[in-house]
């Protein structure tokens, strides 16, 4: 039975190691977490049902161990109720990267982010947000699966993930801001070199968006007048 456990664990370890590495704040903590989770899993191996997904079962134990450890530490106060929405704008990183580098930030900025920066940014997130973020970004789990793994409602997952993304973007920007200095006057240069054709296209797009946005109101306002003039 116990050797079965090691047979199941060994192939999962390389992948399972990544979750604690990003959940814990230091590499030593990550090793402790992985080790504690492995021991817990070993003790409870009789509850594992043959034919089910060992990695998912192990990950659930690992998360429980992690959350228990974090609760014990209570390094940070619960900030679930703090309103991050007002603090960080939507598409925070997109706007910052575009201002700094010009052009398409997906091409100019994203590839500059390093694994080390991601790890440090994740370490800054509050515990519950970090757990959600790791399951989402690393394991690519759905909202449903995260809710089951963390034993919380799906709407809680949705709101935590929404905030975790924003916080992660802000942390990443703060971390990479010094290392990735934009070229001098990059934004102005980009603005000056934009062709007249591109500016015209932008203007046309803005007009189109204006119409799409205000069309219902205009319709609401204009319809009675049009009906009256048609009746005359």
């Amino acid at each position: 039975m116990s050797s079965d456990f090691e047979t199941q664990l060994k192939p999962v370890l390389p992948v399972a190691y990544r979750a604690p590495l990003h959940l814990a704040r230091t590499e030593d903590d990550a090793q402790d977490l992985l080790q504690d989770a492995a021991i817990q899993a070993f003790r409870r191996f009789e509850t594992f049902e043959d034919g089910t997904h060992f990695r998912a079962w192990f990950l659930k134990i690992l998360l429980r161990v992690h959350l228990n450890k974090e609760r014990e530490k209570q390094r940070r106060p619960a900030i679930e109720n703090r309103d991050f929405e007002d603090e960080i704008e939507q598409n925070f990183l997109f706007h910052r990267a575009r201002e700094a580098f010009g052009g398409d930030p997906a091409k100019t900025y994203l590839q500059k982010i390093t694994a080390q920066e991601i790890h440090r940014a994740l370490a800054e997130l509050p515990t519950e947000f970090r757990a959600c973020a790791v399951l989402y970004f690393l394991e690519q789990m759905s909202y449903d699966a995260i809710a089951v793994a963390l034993d919380c409602p799906i709407n809680t997952v949705r709101s935590r993930l929404h905030r975790a993304r924003k916080l992660l973007q802000r942390e990443l920007w703060m971390l990479s801001g010094n290392g990735a200095t934009p070229p001098p006057d990059a934004a102005n240069h980009a603005a000056k070199t934009r062709s007249k054709r591109a500016r015209n296209a932008d203007f046309a797009l803005k007009c189109e968006l204006f119409w799409l946005r205000w069309q219902p109101k205009i319709e609401q306002f204009a319809a009675p007048k049009l009906a009256r003039s048609a009746a005359r």
Partner: peptide, 28 residues
């Protein structure tokens, strides 16, 4: 597109981490 690539880039870089053999040994 930026947000989609952001998620993909984070996933790619998080998955690039390798398990050091000494940690595997310590766990076993």
């Amino acid at each position: 597109r930026f947000e989609k690539l952001f998620v993909e880039e984070i996933n790619r870089k998080m998955n690039a981490v390798q398990l050091p053999p000494e940690i595997e040994n310590a766990v076993l």
